[in-house]
Computed example of a mutant assay.
Amino acid sequence: MNQLRSLNIEHVSPVGLLRQEISRRTPFGLTAERLAQQGKPLAEDSTLALMRRWFWTRKPDAGFALSGFPATLLQAKVFDEWLDARDESLHGLIAADQSSEAVVDHYRALGLTVVETSALAA
C-alpha cells in the first residue's frame, strides 16, 4: 500500500472508513461500534452509504484502489452507477481469494481485466 501512496493513489476500504468514523465518534461510528460489540455486521445499505460519502467527496478522476468493496453484486452494480454518473471507469480488478464470485463474474462480463491473487502467487 506504500507503493500506492507513492503513485498518489488513495487506498480505500469500508473497514478503514469505518475505523475513522468510530475514532471520530460520529453518530455513524457510534452505531457501527455498538453493532460490532454485539457481533453484528454493518448492514449493506450502511456500507453503501459510507462508501457513497467517500466516493462523492473525492476529487473526480483521482486514482484509488479499493479493498473489500464492492463485496456483493448489489454493491458492484451501485458502484458502477456512481462511476457512470461521473463518467469514470475501472481499469482492472485484482480479486483476492475471498472475493465474491458474483462480483468477479460481473466485472468479467463487462470486459474488465480480472487478475486473481492465486494466479499472482504461482
Rank of each mutant, 00 (worst) to 15 (best):
R58F: 08
L30I: 11
L17C: 00
L48F: 06
N2F: 13
S23D: 06
G16D: 06
E88C: 06
D105A: 15
L112Q: 08
D105Q: 15
R24L: 03
I94D: 02
Q37W: 06
R58Y: 11
A85T: 12
G39H: 03
S89H: 12
L74I: 04
A122I: 01
W82S: 06
T113P: 04
S46P: 00
K77T: 08
S118I: 02
P41K: 10
V78Q: 04
S6Y: 07
R86P: 03
V104K: 05
S67Q: 04
P60I: 05
T26D: 02
P60F: 00
Q20R: 05
P70A: 15
N8S: 09
G16I: 03
Q20N: 05
M1I: 12
E81F: 06
R108V: 15
R108L: 15
G63A: 11
A32P: 00
L110A: 12
G16A: 05
A49L: 09
L18Q: 08
E10G: 04
D97P: 11
N2S: 14
I94Y: 04
D97W: 10
F55W: 03
V104R: 10
L18I: 12
R19A: 02
L110N: 11
A43P: 15
R25I: 05
M51G: 00
R108A: 15
V78W: 00
D84A: 08
P70G: 13
F79W: 00
R19Q: 06
T117E: 01
G68I: 11
A122L: 05
A36P: 05
V115S: 14
Q38V: 05
T47S: 07
F64I: 12
S100K: 12
L50S: 00
V103I: 09
L66A: 07
Q98K: 13
S13D: 08
T57G: 00
R52F: 15
R34L: 05
A85M: 09
A65W: 03
A121N: 07
L93Y: 01
S23N: 09
L4W: 10
P14E: 05
L7I: 04
V104P: 00
D84P: 00
A95K: 02
G63N: 08
